[in-house]
């Protein structure tokens, strides 16, 4: 499951939990797409404390979405990922 909400004028929170599937990514595109068209700077927080997994088709769809908006991601000046997984830190680094 995936939920997107604004927690401030310039901060968007994405919460991942359980297994993220292709439909979740469609929802992410719908919710986050318009925010990527804004003027920055904005902050993005990804909460993944209860995230278990992502399906292969969802992973591919998410990558396509990221690449399609590549020029717009810089609207987010800061991105925080909340997770106890050390692997997430390594990926960010």
């Amino acid at each position: 499951m995936l939920r997107v909400r604004e927690i401030g004028a310039d901060v968007v929170e994405v919460t991942l939990s359980g297994v993220v599937d292709r439909a979740d990514i469609a929802g992410l595109e719908q919710a986050l797409g318009p925010k990527l068209e804004r003027e920055g700077p904005m902050g993005l927080i990804v909460r993944a404390e209860d995230w278990a997994d992502i399906t292969a088709d969802a992973l591919a769809a998410e990558a396509r979405f990221e690449l399609s908006k590549l020029a717009r991601w810089s609207v987010f000046a800061r991105m925080a990922v909340v997770s106890d997984l050390q692997a997430i830190g390594a990926i960010l680094a």
Binding site: V11, A77, R78, A80, V82, D84, G89
Partner: peptide
């Protein structure tokens, strides 16, 4: 984009950090 990982116990700190733009 500046990126950081926070432990679950630091969730409020993460929110403060991304809000400090």
């Amino acid at each position: 984009i500046e990126m950081r990982r926070f432990d679950a116990a630091q969730a409020s700190e993460a929110e403060a950090w991304v809000s400090d733009l």
